[in-house]
Design a protein around this nucleic acid. Sequence first.
DNA 1: CCTGCAAAAATGTGATCACATTTTCGGACG
DNA 2: CGTCCGAAAATGTGATCACATTTTTGCAGG
Lengths: 247, 247
Amino acid sequence: MPSRSRLAAPLEIERPGRRRTARTAGAPGSATEAPAAAPIHDQVYDTLKTAIVTGQIVPGRAVTLRGLAATLGVSPMPVREAIRRISAEGGLVIHPNRRVSVPDMTRARFDEVVAARSLLEPEAAARALPHIDAARLARIRAADDDIERALETGDVEDYMASNHRFHFEIYGAARSEVLVPLIESVWLRFGPFMRLVYGRFGTAILIDQHERAIEAIAARDEAGLRAAIRADILDGMNEIGAASLVD
Amino acid sequence: MPSRSRLAAPLEIERPGRRRTARTAGAPGSATEAPAAAPIHDQVYDTLKTAIVTGQIVPGRAVTLRGLAATLGVSPMPVREAIRRISAEGGLVIHPNRRVSVPDMTRARFDEVVAARSLLEPEAAARALPHIDAARLARIRAADDDIERALETGDVEDYMASNHRFHFEIYGAARSEVLVPLIESVWLRFGPFMRLVYGRFGTAILIDQHERAIEAIAARDEAGLRAAIRADILDGMNEIGAASLVD
DNA sequence: CCTGCAAAAATGTGATCACATTTTCGGACG
DNA sequence: CGTCCGAAAATGTGATCACATTTTTGCAGG
C-alpha cells in the first residue's frame, strides 16, 4: 500500500488559449452562439470533483487552498469557490478548524448512502427509460463493456469511471434537474470510499449486475429496470460495506 | 438609489461585536472559550438561505453580488462564496449570462421534487423515529401548534417557517449526514414556489396532516409514520401543483 | 529521549483593485 | 412615435494584499 501518498495523479487543469478576446463586431442576427469561455472556477470544480469521485484524494488528508491553486496553476480565488461548491455537495467537509478534506466513511453514513441510492436511482432510471434512444443505449452498452474489461484487468480507476458513466448515461436520458443532481451528490460522497475499498481488496468482489438493466431497457420494462438498478446497488454496496466497515 | 434591488424584507445580517481589532495583547490566559466566530460568508449563507426558503426573493429577479453585499453591509467576497454554495444546493441558478436568480418552477421540476420528497422524507423519518425523545416530541408538537395558528391567521411566512421546523425537527433526531442534507436541498428548491402559491391562493387549501404523524411517533409506529409523512407530502404538493401549474 | 514552548511558516478569510462583458440608458435617425 | 446604436453604469471573475489564527518547526530544559 502506498503509504499516505499525496495526489495519485498530476491533477492538471485544462487551460486552452485564454480566449477571453471575443466579438466586438455587432453582427446582429448571426445567432451568436457564444462560446462562453468556462470560468476558471468551473474548470477547477470539474477537475477537483473528478479527482474526488475517482478517489485520487485521500480521505482525511487536508486539501489546502494555496496548495491546490499552485498545483493547478491558478490563483487561490477560483479554488476557493470550487471548494465551497463541492463542500455544499458533500464531496468535501470543512472541519471546525476550517481545514478542508475528503470526508471519511463511517458505518452510519454508509447506511444512509445505500438508502439514498436505492431510493433515488431506481426512480431516476424509471423516469429516464422512455427517453433512452438507440444511440444512448449503445453508449450504455459501451460503458458496460468498458466495465467488463476493467474488471478483467483489475484497473480500479477505469472501473470506477466506466461505472459512473454507465449509471449516469441512463439517469441522464431525461433532463432531470432534481433527482440526478441529488444522485450526483450521493456519488460524490461514496466515491472516495469505493476507491479505497477497491484499492485494498481489488475489484474481484464485484459482480456485474448490469446485464439485467440493459435487457430491461431494451424491453422497455420499467419494473425490471428498477429491480436491476436496485439489485446492482444493494449487491455491490453491501458486499463492500460488509468487507470493510467494522463498527 | 435602492429602488431597484428591492427585496421583500430588510434581509439584514447579524454582526455582533466581532470587530477586526481583537487581541493584540498576547494575554494567553483569560480562558478564551473560542466562540469560533462564524465567518461572514456563513452568516450570509444563512441569511440568504432563509430568505430563499421563505420566499422573500422573487424567482427570476436577479440577485447581484454587489447589491446583496451592499444590503448586508459586507464586501462582495463573502457573498460570492455564499451564492456559490447555495447554487450548488439548488437554491439559486446561474444563467449562461452568469446572472444569478432564484429558479422558477416548472411542471417537470415540480414532479421531480414531489418524487424526491416522497422517497427521501419517509425514510428519514423512519430512521429518526427511534431517536425521538420526549423533549423533541414536545418541540414537534409545538411546531404543529404554530402551524395551526398560522393557518388560522393566514400568515404565510409563519406557516412556512413552522412547517419547516416541524419536518426537520423530526428528520434531525438522528444525526443524518446524507439524507437530511439531501432533503434540505429539495426544500431549498421548492420553498420559493410554495411561497408564491400561498401568496396567491392563501393557505386555505392546506390540510394539516401532521396529527397522524405525531400519533405515529408517540406510538413508535414506523410504518404509520412513513405513511403519514408521505400523505402529508402528496396531499399538500399535489394540491398546490394542480392549483397553480399549467403545462 | 521526551516534553514544553516560542518563533516561523502556512492557512482561511475578507477587502480592494483591474478588467472583460453585459446590461441599461439617452439621444439621434427614420 | 418607434428603432437602433453608442456611451455609461453595473456585473461577475480573477488576482493580490493584509490579517488573525492555526499548524509546524526548532530548540531548550527535564
